[in-house]
């Protein structure tokens, strides 16, 4: 964690007062500056002031939290957004990520987990492919030379597989929906569906994983998409 953690400003959008107070308390204890909003209208107002991250509950009394997410992204803002979602609604998570949320936590959540997610998000670059050498455990990727290998062994990847791995390795620990991966790796004009992504992930795993039936690098986020394993 870097030293500037204390100065980070978080907007907490949550309509339930009990949860709001508990989260507020924990976040303040973790050293963040927190302002709260209970309604969509209130949050739209507060987001204008300088915020570093938004914690967004989806079911708000005056509208859908996703609308805030959508309008922020439409206006070009890349402020990190973490969704607070219910456990039994994976499609809600997918929708949230698709409209531009960066991460989600499932209610009821553990406060330490939420704080860890917030710190992780501040640490990460957020959806860009880096140009430096990437390495996770024994797997390495050289974006300049467009080469991938495990330890001393070079691995032969097709260009699209390389792009996919490069993109995911550049953003470790973050869950991507299949639609997001299509958009980021294949491009917006690509006319493929979720199975295209599944197919490429399967091929990628068969090349980079020791046991493709028990993948360690590219992890499935059930019902949502895929995530590149964060270095532990």
């Amino acid at each position: 964690m870097n030293a500037s953690t204390e100065s980070r400003k978080i907007l907490l959008v949550e309509d339930d007062e009990r949860i709001r107070l508990e989260v507020l308390d924990s976040l303040q204890a973790a050293g963040f500056t927190v302002s709260v909003a209970a309604t969509l209208a209130e949050s739209q107002e507060k987001v204008q002031s300088d915020m570093d991250l938004i914690l967004l509950d989806l079911g708000l009394p005056d509208g859908d939290g996703l609308d805030l997410c959508r309008s922020l992204r439409a206006s070009g803002s890349d402020i990190p957004i973490i969704l607070l979602t219910a456990r039994d609604a994976p499609e809600q998570r997918v929708r949230g990520l698709d409209v531009g949320a960066d991460d989600y936590v499932v209610k009821p959540f553990h406060m330490p987990e939420l704080v860890a997610r917030i710190r992780g998000l501040f640490r990460r670059s957020g959806g860009k492919s880096s140009t430096g050498m990437l390495r996770t455990d024994s797997l390495w990727l050289d974006p300049q030379a467009r080469t991938v290998g495990r330890d001393e062994q070079r691995l032969e990847l097709k260009p699209r597989e390389f792009d996919l791995l490069h993109f995911m390795m550049s953003n470790p620990g973050r869950a991507w929906t299949r639609d997001q991966l299509i958009e980021r790796v294949w491009g917006k004009s690509f006319d493929g569906d979720a199975r295209t992504v599944d197919l490429h992930i399967a091929r990628l795993r068969s090349k980079i994983e020791k046991d493709p039936s028990d993948p360690r690098y590219v992890e499935t986020v059930w019902g949502v998409g895929y995530r590149f394993q964060e270095e532990s």
Binding site: P90, E91, A194, D198, I201, A202, R205, D211, P212, S213, D214, P215, E219, T220, W222, G223
Partner: peptide
Amino acid sequence: LNLEPVPPGELIRQ
């Protein structure tokens, strides 16, 4: 059902 490819090893490990 939200069908997706499920490697059994990954399921058990997770």
